[in-house]
């Protein structure tokens, strides 16, 4: 058994730059694809509520502003958000998703209510591609007419 096996490693680091970062003054960059906070592209949203249904933290609330106009309001409660990005996965808009994640990670604040973000928008009508011609009458789904 040897004595002081750690010594060379320790002395080697004495005059080396520390591995830690002087955090609030110097910041590390987050990698591409980092899941920060979710946000909405209001001009793309078709108000299908898929994100609202799949959000595990129930952080997304979509309400209709008035019945006549197709005006909707989406509120994201960032205090409840768990940054799983399931809303981005669930979003059906193509080819650009209406929900997206940014790279923010410093979200601490004194009042949780200030973490709410909201958008009021008119529902986007999805540009319909030419309908795929139904190849055969959908006989396997009884009772459901093929669109």
């Amino acid at each position: 058994m040897k004595v002081a096996v750690f010594l060379p490693e320790l002395l080697r680091h004495l005059f080396k730059k520390p591995a830690t970062v002087d955090y609030p003054f110097k910041k590390l960059t987050v990698p591409e694809g980092f899941r920060g906070t979710p946000f909405l592209h209001p001009d793309l949203c078709i108000a299908c509520r898929a994100c609202e249904r799949d959000c595990p933290a129930e952080a997304i609330v979509i309400t209709q502003e008035s019945d006549v106009e197709k005006k909707f309001k989406m509120v994201i409660h960032n205090d409840r958000c768990i940054h799983c990005a399931q809303c981005v996965d669930s979003c059906p808009t193509n080819p650009v998703k209406a929900m997206d994640m940014d790279h923010l990670y410093e979200l601490a604040c004194f009042d949780r209510h200030t973490l709410k973000t909201e958008w009021v928008f008119t529902r986007a009508t999805p540009k319909r591609e030419p309908k795929p011609v139904p190849a055969a009458p959908a006989s396997d789904r009884a009772g459901i007419p093929a669109k």
Binding site: L10, H13, L14, F15, K16, P18, A19, T20, D22
Partner: peptide
């Protein structure tokens, strides 16, 4: 400070 630098940390800054 010495203890921190030996451990590759910053110590009081």
């Amino acid at each position: 400070k010495v203890y921190a630098r030996l451990q590759n940390r910053m110590g009081p800054t």
